[in-house]
């Protein structure tokens, strides 16, 4: 019990004193996961909309592949990205393995199918004749796509939440492609794993609390937006 209480005390101390190392780790977590979420939003919403609206052979198989990829194990993604970026790998010459850039790539690979899968469902769940109604209003094809995406904005907010939640809390890929280098690629999750391994439970609990607070704050903000959109 003392262990836990000490952990909370330490966490409180690290938070109120704005510990430099903890602050650095937190900011890097936000930067890496935020950027990865933004990129996956672009890939996921555009790709998801195209898949949802287009008719082509093999569409069902592709949707199944996207849906399956929504649960990609981070360690598998970490392994794949490591191989790709390894010195002798296809993109070895970029020399970005064990850098934040590699972590953004890995997290983008994890988040994109999540955003894409939710986007496909969101667009497909719109009334089938809405597309025709928008065209009947005189819309061009790009205007139609934009209006459909706007109509699906609430589920798309859920896609952002799911995507960000998925990557800010993953550890496997980040540790594999980032290497948990102090002051460079160390993020909240990798630091928590390391501190737990060292038996520094107080620091680990503090980092865990910060991680939870960030997740809560981001989701709370997005929920507020969703609720404001919904009529009461």
């Amino acid at each position: 019990m003392d262990l836990i209480l000490d952990g909370f005390r330490m966490a409180w101390h690290l938070l109120v004193t704005l510990d430099k190392e903890v602050l650095g780790v937190t900011l890097l977590s936000l930067k890496v996961s935020g950027l990865a979420t933004l990129i996956s939003l672009l890939i996921g919403v555009v790709g998801g909309t195209v898949i949802a609206l287009a008719e082509f052979p093999g569409k069902r198989i592709l949707v199944s592949v996207v849906n399956t990829s929504m649960g990609l194990p981070p360690v598998v993604v970490g392994l794949f990205v490591t191989i790709m970026l390894w010195r002798n790998g296809p993109f070895g010459e970029w020399e970005i393995l064990y850098t934040p850039a590699a972590m953004v790539i890995a997290q983008t690979v994890i988040a994109s199918p999540i955003v894409m899968g939710i986007s496909i469902a969101a667009i497909q769940n719109l009334p089938p004749n809405l597309r025709l109604q928008i065209l009947a209003l005189g819309a061009s094809r790009p205007q139609m796509v934009w209006l459909l995406v706007r109509e699906a904005r609430l589920p798309l907010l859920a896609a952002i939440m799911a995507g960000f939640g998925g990557v800010i809390s993953e550890v496997g890929a980040s540790i594999m492609v980032g290497g948990n280098i102090k002051g460079y690629t160390r993020v909240l999750t990798t630091a928590t794993v390391m501190e737990t391994g060292k038996g520094n439970f107080d620091t680990a609990i503090a980092l865990g609390i910060i991680l939870l607070l960030i997740c809560f704050a981001i989701n709370y903000l997005l929920t507020l937006v969703q609720q404001r959109e919904r009529p009461r």
Binding site: P127, N129, L130, L132, Q133, L135, A136, L137, G138, A139, S140, R141, M144, L147, R150, E151, R153, L154, E229
Partner: peptide, 22 residues
């Protein structure tokens, strides 16, 4: 054609089901 808007901008259509925007 969904690309040609010149004709569709001179007409209007109302569907049976309510298809209003949110």
């Amino acid at each position: 054609s969904s690309g040609d808007t010149s004709y569709r901008r001179r007409i209007a259509m109302v569907f049976q089901e309510p298809l209003l925007f949110d």
